[in-house]
């Protein structure tokens, strides 16, 4: 887009080129910032209005990646810093989905940001009734664009395998909040191997007693300290 405008300019000195690029980039940056700010505001109406104004002024993929998705990342940062909270994350995710929906016709056949980032099965292992931390992780992963199947807490080992097969999952998230139930994470990994699924399915472990060292020991692909890190590591492993 920047190149096209430069070709039309009468002065072809390099210096001028740079200035024009900056002007164009600044205009786009303002566009992206407006979209990003609208997502951070968590207001669906603001996002829809911002997308309506931005549509056609930059490629839809850029509007999504540099505007809406950037805003969602900012929401994640603000959540981690205790400035925004779970309902706001969900409102922002809902607003972003509405914005992406408006850009669908421009995305055409290309792989847009509307496609799912991956399929994740999430659950707390058998014998462990803790739910809240795992639920936050599921919510944040969903808000980030993953298809999440949260199968609850105190989940029998076989249920993880069944759900992974049913959903053709790319990753499984295993939560345990007690030292006594941590072993359940390893049991799921062992059953994944027995079912020939281990090479296909990434494994993330989490929960208060889980650590990096435990993740290595039990054969998981990664350990996530909190919900924001879970999103970052899921992206790292699946994208």
């Amino acid at each position: 887009m920047v190149v096209r405008i430069n070709v039309l300019l009468p002065h072809q000195c390099g210096f001028f080129h740079i200035d024009v690029k900056e002007v164009v980039n600044t205009a786009n940056e303002e566009l992206f910032k407006t979209l990003s700010d609208a997502v951070v505001s968590c207001k669906k109406d603001d996002v829809i209005a911002a997308v309506g104004k931005a549509k056609g002024k930059a490629p839809a993929v850029e509007l999504i990646d540099n505007g809406l998705a950037a805003g969602m990342n900012e929401v994640g940062v603000l959540f981690e810093r205790g400035k925004l909270f779970l309902p706001h994350v969900m409102m922002a995710a809902d607003a972003m989905s509405a914005g992406v929906e408006l850009l669908q016709d421009e995305l055409g056949g290309s792989e847009g940001a509307s496609s799912k980032l991956g399929v994740i099965v999430n659950g707390t292992v058998e014998g462990d009734v803790h739910d809240i931390g795992k639920a936050i992780v599921s919510t944040m992963l969903q808000a980030a664009g993953f298809e999440v199947h949260d199968i609850g807490r105190d989940v029998p080992v076989q249920n993880f395998i069944d759900k992974i097969k049913e959903t053709d999952a790319d990753m499984v998230g295993l939560s345990a909040l007690m030292t006594t139930t941590l072993q359940g994470q390893k049991e799921v990994i062992e059953l994944l191997k027995e079912n020939g699924l281990r090479d296909k399915v990434k494994v993330m472990v989490g929960g208060a007693p889980a650590t990096d060292a435990w993740a290595k020991k039990c054969g998981a692909d990664c350990y996530a300290e909190n919900a924001s890190e879970a999103v970052a590591k899921a992206k790292e492993l699946l994208l």
């Binding site: 969900m90 809240i132 639920a135 599921s138 969903q142 949260d150």
Partner: peptide
């Protein structure tokens, strides 16, 4: 009702 489930269904 579990707010975690409700939240994931956007029933804020």
């Amino acid at each position: 009702e579990n707010p975690g489930d409700l939240m994931k269904a956007f029933k804020i």
